[in-house]
Amino acid sequence: MTDRSALSREPAGASLPARLVERLWDGLIALVDAPLAALQRLVGAERMAYFFLAPNLIFFGLFVFVPIGICIVYSVTGGAGIFPFARPYVGAQHYATLADCGSYLDPHSCQADHFWRGVRNTLIFSAFQLVAMVGVSLFTALALNRDIRARGFFRAAFFFPVLLSPVVVALIWKWILQRDGLLNAAITASGGQKILFFVEPGWAMFWAVFVSVWAHMGFYTLILLAGLQAIPRDIYEAAEMDGTKPLRVLTRLTLPLLWPNLLVVLVLVLIRAVQTFDEVFVLTGGGPGTATLMVVQFIYETAFANQTQNFGLASAASILLGGLLFVLTLLQLALARRKAA
């Protein structure tokens, strides 16, 4: 199966520790080689791929597919029991509860009004976040791609918030935005009135989007920066020689060539926005009222925060959300394939 002599890279005159390491390596290869060679003879070379995929598949199945299966079982059973066998079968009752609406555009007419408020808020949040995140990330990537002073520092500075836990991010901003926070101190110091950011629905949604963009833009900037650096320099040099204006360079050269990366960013941002929970939950608690209540918070509260832990209804909502994410993931895969082609 393996040419052991080829793997032995012991150079002449190598030091004793290096030689020992090489020997150890050869020994390990020999140990693995024999049983794998026997297995390959038994199953054939084509099927060996399954053997190498098996550990990951088992792990993935255990922690992803089994929970999805359990979630489906929960969504068609009722009661407060935790074990599936202790829960009565209710069919599509939970799905019917979620779908029972006078008008889907008016959450108030729905039986599960909080779910639909969550859907509406998630859509609003996603739309604003998508535009803001892509716009800010693109602008930052373009700026960081230029030959500016302290470029390395700025690249690190913009990426730094990505390293922070979402809960920490939300707590920092909560401290800044509260009644006696840093921002209100600055406003009052400059002669203004305190603003209760978490009492006004518009402000609460604005800050939810802002904080999310602040925390994650570094990651998307990095993707776009990689795309920008992959664009050949000579195209820009040719444009410069032709006397093309900067705005035209951006719209006719940079953006079209960056489009594959932009598409990936668009889909990733959208998926993440739909899944949003931790930052917004810690920052606004879903309020004021239900102005920033997202679908995932509805699922969490339905499953855990009430005395009746309604795992059935929460699971049905999770399955619907999972379906939406599945569609978005397919979109991402299709776009990625198109990019590769």
Partner: peptide, 14 residues
């Protein structure tokens, strides 16, 4: 003040 009862959603304690 709305900051206690009105600023969060659901069953959150404040």
């Amino acid at each position: 003040s709305k900051e206690l009862w009105g600023s969060v959603s659901g069953t959150a304690y404040r």
